[in-house]
């Protein structure tokens, strides 16, 4: 079976990449193929990376409060590209009140500070739809 392919992306202007890098390594150590896009990626760039890398999963890291602007754009672009079967998860500083809205637009998992890596790994393996 092919390894799960995960694009880890950090959209927005924020540069705090500790979380993105730690989760990228944890997913890699859990046997997934991880592509880290680097900082300040636009939703367009992230979707292009997902398409090019044939990603099963997109993991977003947003700590700056810009999630309500980035997420809808990203989800719309994924749909346009026929990538709406890609599992999208989000980690960062996300106010409770915003979580239902994010889930309604198709972000399956929202993970707050302190979430164990294993919980995220388990979530991905149990929710991803194999694409091959």
């Amino acid at each position: 079976m092919r390894k799960l392919r995960v694009v880890i992306a950090k959209p927005g202007l924020d540069g705090h990449d500790r979380g993105a890098k730690v989760i990228a390594r944890a997913l890699r150590d859990a046997g997934m193929e991880v592509i880290y896009t680097g900082l300040r990626q636009t939703p367009e760039q992230i979707v292009a990376a997902a398409l090019q890398e044939d990603a099963d999963v997109i993991g977003l890291s947003i700590l700056s409060g810009a999630h309500n602007h980035i997420a809808p754009r990203l989800m719309a672009l994924l749909k346009e590209q026929g990538l709406d079967d890609v599992l999208v998860v989000l980690g960062g500083i996300i106010p409770d009140v915003d979580i239902p809205g994010l889930k309604a637009m198709g972000i399956r998992g929202v993970f707050l500070p302190g979430t164990p890596m294993q919980e995220i790994i388990d979530f991905i393996t149990s929710h991803v739809r194999a694409r091959n």
Partner: peptide, 22 residues
Amino acid sequence: DLPTLMGRDPDDPVSLGEVGKC
């Protein structure tokens, strides 16, 4: 805020959603 830290004005497209947040 992040746009100021990154030398971007509030009406710059990359500032969308970040003005006054952090």
